[in-house]
Every structure is written in C-alpha cells, then in structure tokens.
Amino acid sequence: MTDNPGVIASQGIARMIAAGQITSATPIPDPQIQPASLDLRLGTVAWRVRASFLPGRGNTVADRARDFEMHEIDLSRGAVLEKGCVYLVPLNEGLALPTTVNAVANAKSSTGRLDLFTRLIADHAVEFDRVDAGYTGPLYAEISPRSFSVLVRPGMRLNQIRFRAGKVALDDAALAALHDAETLVNGPAQIDNGLGFSVDLKPGKGDIVGYRAKPHTALIDLDKLGHYAVDEFWEPVRAEDGRIILDPGAFYILVSREAVHVPPQYAAEMAPYLAMVGEFRVHYAGFFDPGFGNATAGGAGSRGVLEVRCHEAPFVLEHGQSVGRLVYEQMQEVPERLYGADLGSNYQGQGLKLSKHFKAPE
C-alpha cells in the first residue's frame, strides 16, 4: 500500500505503474525500476532555453517555456546538447500521485559524474527535483552540460525519481542505533543531522586521488559505454601532501574516505553541501539504494564518489575534511531486488571511479 510510511520499494513502484499513478505513453520496461527509484526517460524533443526557470504556483512548465524557448530540437535521430547551454526535455513519464505520496528526484550516478547538470521540473513547482503529494501532470528534465557536450537520444535515462509516503528520514538517535546494529560506515560515525563523510586525499594505489575535467574535449555519446580514453577528457589530480586547491569553475571527481553501507531496509540520500564547509558543491547525484555496500548484495562497504565544483574563490581541500552527510530513510518494505551484481549495478564496491562511459584503467 502506498500510504504506509516509508520510501516506496521496487515492487511498490510496479504497483503504482499498474494503478496508473505513474503514467507513460509507452510501456515502462522492467529495467527502469530500481530498488528504491524509477529511472525517467527522455522524450523525442528538446527546447533550447535562454535560462533555467521554475514555473511557480499556478503555472505550467509548457506555458513558461514559451517565454524562454529559443528553438526546438528533434532528438529522434540523436542530437547534441552543447556545453554551457540549457535545455528542457519533456519526459516520457508523468504522475498521478495519491495525496499521501510525494516524490524527490536526482541525477543518476553516471549523469553526475559527467558534470551533466540535470534537474526535474513539474508543473506549478517552486523547487527543482521536488513533486508535491497528489500531483497530477507531466514531468520535464532541465539539462545543462557543464564540462562535456553530449549526444542524446529518446529513451535515455539521465535522472530518477524516488517516492515517499509519510515521514521517512531517521533522526540522529535512530541513525546512531542503526549504526550500532548494522555498521553504516567504517571507522567512527559522525552523526549530526545525518551521517557525515569526509574526502580521501591520501593516495592509495599510485598517487592519483581524483580527476579534473579538461576544458576542451570531444563529444560524449551517452550510448557508448567503456568507450572513451580517460586521458582525453580528464587530467589526474595528485595530492602528495594530503591537500589540493580547487580552482573556481573547475569540476572534480573525488572519493569519500569512508566506506558506506546502506542496509536493505533503508535508502539514503546525499544532502546538499552547507555553505559553512566551503564554497563548493559536493554532488549532483545523491541517491544511495538499499543494498549499497551491503555484503549480501556483493559489497563490503562502498565509498561515495564525490562530484565537486568550486565556486567563488580557490579553496583548499584537505584529507579527512568533512564535505557532506548522508540522510538515511526507512523503506516501506525491503525491495525484491537490491543494489548490486544481480542488477548489473556499475558502482557496487567502488572506490575512485569515473562514469561507465570511460575505459577502465589498465
């Protein structure tokens, strides 16, 4: 039942589809359904818009788009979304949510690791990536490639949506108890409005602690997996002294010092950075599925990959510095399939890792 408290699991999402609470003009294939979320597919057209926008109360996205649209792009044969531009794409999926269910969206992991800024917009929305309980209407993706221009086609899945019924987030007392029972992180647990994590800037194998996106690169076709040479798009980041200086406007892939575990009956979300920890954004993709880093799902704790962009001024980042926190949420029921090898999950047991589009290091 969708009115029981908790994040709705894969089998609950399937029931929502069958009940018409998640709509689509074409059938939704089973691989779109993840343990605690639904992947969303691009439609057949995109609009190049002058600026990012929110529709606001009483306004539809389509009506507001007319104020900002520059031209329409046919995606059916594949189309290039250019770095530095903003696009609006109607998604195949829409919603007819019960009044007890709201939703939150986020970019998929590979989307974030390409610095492909992707956010969900719903009619009447006053926030990105948030859908109110009871919402009925279409969904749109705002896409803004930041580091690399990309080739996209209809049906590609760049973002995902998670459905929640009632109060789902664990408070600090419940989170501490869960850590005592399940060991959510190796080492001491820093619990304060979620589970804190820090950055790893001490080299392990070799001396590379991260990657920085090169400013002038070729196009990335999002259908080509394991295809691109790392050194054509990324330069390695080294930190012999356990610190790096982030350059304003540059995009980095780093990794958390801690190995994280999400038990099967819980999900987690990486919370937005706090301004007090520094002038940088910690992530784009923030969903951690049930089973992430879980031993029964092929993991033994998995480190979180950090998508980092520095803002106003150069900023010194040091090994072990706190950079964010994970908010754990109760599942409505344990998913029938967990994140891991059985789902072909790309990042179970990960350390420092680029998106699946790049060739594995030799």
Rank of each mutant, 00 (worst) to 15 (best):
F128S: 06
A271P: 00
G12C: 13
S149G: 12
S109F: 01
E329M: 11
K205D: 07
G12T: 10
L219S: 05
L38G: 05
E182L: 01
A36G: 07
L222K: 04
L88H: 08
P361T: 08
E232K: 01
Y328L: 12
T100P: 07
G94C: 04
S52F: 11
A169E: 03
D115W: 14
A295G: 00
S109W: 00
Y211Q: 05
R66L: 09
V230A: 11
E279T: 13
A295S: 08
G351A: 15
E269A: 06
A79N: 13
L139K: 06
A165T: 10
V126L: 13
Y135N: 07
V131C: 02
L116M: 06
A259F: 09
G204C: 04
G298Y: 02
I13F: 08
G43Q: 06
V152H: 13
A271M: 13
F251T: 09
L139P: 00
H179S: 02
R64Y: 08
F163P: 05
N294D: 11
R113Y: 02
Y140F: 15
K353F: 03
M270I: 15
L274Q: 12
A181R: 14
F358R: 05
P31W: 11
E72Q: 14
A96W: 01
A275L: 11
A275P: 05
Q330I: 06
K202H: 09
D3W: 15
A96C: 09
F53E: 03
V86F: 14
I8F: 07
H283L: 06
Y140D: 01
I33V: 15
N92P: 00
L175T: 04
W47V: 09
N92W: 03
V152M: 14
S355V: 00
Q265F: 06
A229K: 08
P335L: 12
V323C: 02
G6Q: 05
I220S: 01
D342V: 09
R119A: 04
A96M: 05
K353C: 15
V49D: 01
L38W: 05
V131Q: 02
L219Y: 05
Q160M: 12
S76D: 09
D221I: 07
A103M: 03
L222T: 08
A51T: 09
Y87P: 07
R164H: 06
V61L: 10
Y339V: 03
G187V: 05
